[in-house]
Simulated scan of single mutants.
Amino acid sequence: MKTEDITLFHRIVETGSLVEAADMLNLPKSTLSRRLQQLEDELKVKLFHRQSRSMTLTASGSHFYDKSLQIMTSLQQAVAELTDKQTDIDGHLRILIFPIPELIYITEAILSFMDINPSITVEVIVSAEPQDMIRNNIDLAFMLEDSFNENDMVARHIIDEPVIFLASPAYLAKAGRPIKAGELSEHNLILFRYPNGKIFNEVPFGINETLKVTGNFCVNNLEVCLAATLSGRGISMMPLTYCQQYIERGQVVRLFEDVPPYVGKCFLVYPSRRYISLASQRFIDYVMKSIESRPYERYCQVE
């Protein structure tokens, strides 16, 4: 029995569809179907109830999934413990990245990791939309706090990012410049929606204060938020490193400079209920060691 076939079985379970699993794994449906049939023949049990558009586990299939997931986890851990750190690794990584200011540095780290491990293949998905990491076969993700469920994920804190209030000179000339926290309620805020669906409309102010704000424009993308800010649509909260150049050019004005900025946190996360591959483990170790040496290290904290 091949461990690779067991892994393919896991992907079918997690997508709920032979077609979706085949597309996700970039394999012909016929190949996946044949290998599943071979696995069932070896086990001498039926793993799925096959329907026209979906596949559901049989009782035997559910039992085998739970047990084999534990076994694969233990196997991967044993391989990681026995494998020399210099040994070549292969495999494919699917990495989700929330569109954060450090995107370029994370990309550089990924490419550098690939240079060290030339047998590795990588697919990067940049998205601010919710993604089911299990269903979409995503191995690792770089995500902001409050954008994932901590109960379903293992999260490693990697980056601290000061987030500041901004507005264009045109907006301030029209609406006035807020001086005190309470004055924000009189202004139009450009709101942000997290991947988990939560709207960021209760914003931190200073160290211990939280303010309820309102606005007529909501986005889930930093570029759109910046464009709206530059066009004078309202006050926004954005990462300092993302908008520093626009502040220096005078295109936007930083507000409440005497108030300590809110510090957003970025995490490297992976599903807690799926075994983590040796390639993923090596990548995590590499990122945790390398990311702190980047130019934005004054904002970065590695645990």
Results as ranks from 00 to 15, higher is better:
A155C: 00
A155K: 07
R156V: 06
R156T: 02
I158L: 15
I159C: 06
D160S: 10
V163I: 13
I164A: 00
F165C: 01
F165N: 03
F165Q: 04
L166A: 15
A167D: 01
S168D: 08
P169N: 05
A170V: 15
A170F: 10
L172R: 05
K174G: 04
A175M: 12
G176H: 04
G176S: 08
R177F: 10
I179H: 12
A181R: 07
A181W: 02
G182D: 07
E186N: 08
L189S: 07
L189C: 10
I190G: 01
L191N: 00
R193Q: 13
Y194H: 14
Y194R: 14
Y194T: 07
P195M: 00
G197Q: 10
K198R: 14
I199S: 09
N201A: 07
N201V: 03
E202Q: 10
I207C: 05
I207L: 14
N208T: 12
T210A: 14
T210S: 11
K212N: 05
G215D: 02
G215N: 05
V219K: 07
V219Y: 10
V219R: 06
N220Q: 11
N220R: 13
N220H: 13
L222K: 04
L226V: 01
A227E: 13
G232I: 08
G234K: 11
G234F: 12
L240W: 09
Y242S: 05
C243E: 05
C243M: 14
Q244G: 01
Q244L: 13
Q245W: 00
Q245F: 03
I247W: 02
V252S: 03
V252D: 07
L255A: 07
E257C: 05
E257P: 06
D258V: 09
P260E: 04
P260V: 02
Y262T: 04
G264I: 03
G264S: 10
G264V: 03
C266F: 11
C266L: 13
